[in-house]
Amino acid sequence: MYQRIIALLKKDILLELRQQHTFYGILLYIASTVYVLHLSMPDNPDADVWNSLFWVIQLFVCVNTVAKSFLQESRGRMLYFYTIASPVEFIIAKLLFNLLLMLLMSIVSLVLFYILLNNPVNDGFKFIGIVLLGGISLSLVFSVMSAIAAKAQHNAALIAILGFPVILPQLLLLMRLSKSAFQEVFREGAILQLAGLIGLLDLLVIVMAVILFPYLWKE
C-alpha cells in the first residue's frame, strides 16, 4: 500500500517537473497578485490589514494551485488508475502531493509579502509555522473540493463555491492564531489550543476524504 502511494506521489511530482509551465504559472499568479496588492495598498499597511490580506491571498493561491489536481486527470487516465490502485491510496497520494505543493507556494507568497508589503511580523518563526499549518488545512480541504468539482464538468468556479463556506471556520481560526505572531498577547495555553483545534479539523478532513472518496471514484 505504501509503495503504491509513493509511486503515485512520485508520478505527480514527475509530472509537475516535466510540465513546468503549470508550476511557473502558479508562481507568476502569486507574484502578480502580490504585486497588484503592493501597488494598490498604502506604503505601510498595519498588521491587521496585512494579516487579513495575506490569508485571503493564500485562499486564492490555494484554489488555483490545488484546483487542477483532479481536473487535469483525463477520463482514460482515471480508468487506468482504477485498475492499478485503490481509491484510498489514490486520494492519500493526491492529498500528500497537494500538501507539498501548497507548502511550497505558502513560503513563496510569504517571502513576496515580506519583500513587497514590508514586514509587520514580530515573531517570524512562529508566523512561518502558522503559515505552514494554514497551507496544510487549505490544501486538504480544497483537494477534496477539487475531487468533487471534477465530477461536475464545471471547474474552478465550482471549487470556490463549494470550498469557501467549508474552509471559513479554519480560516477564521488561522487569522486569529496568526495575531499571536504580531503584537497581540494571548492567554497562557490559548495558542496551543487553537493550533490543536486546526490540527484536529485537518485530521477530520483526512478521515472524511478517505471514507468518502471511494464513492466519488466509482463511475
Partner: peptide
C-alpha cells in the same frame, strides 16, 4: 456526488 458533499460539508459545519 451531492451526497458526498452533503456529508463532508455537514461534518465540517458542526465543529
Amino acid at each position: 456526488i451531492s451526497a458526498v458533499y452533503n456529508i463532508f460539508a455537514f461534518a465540517m459545519l458542526f465543529p
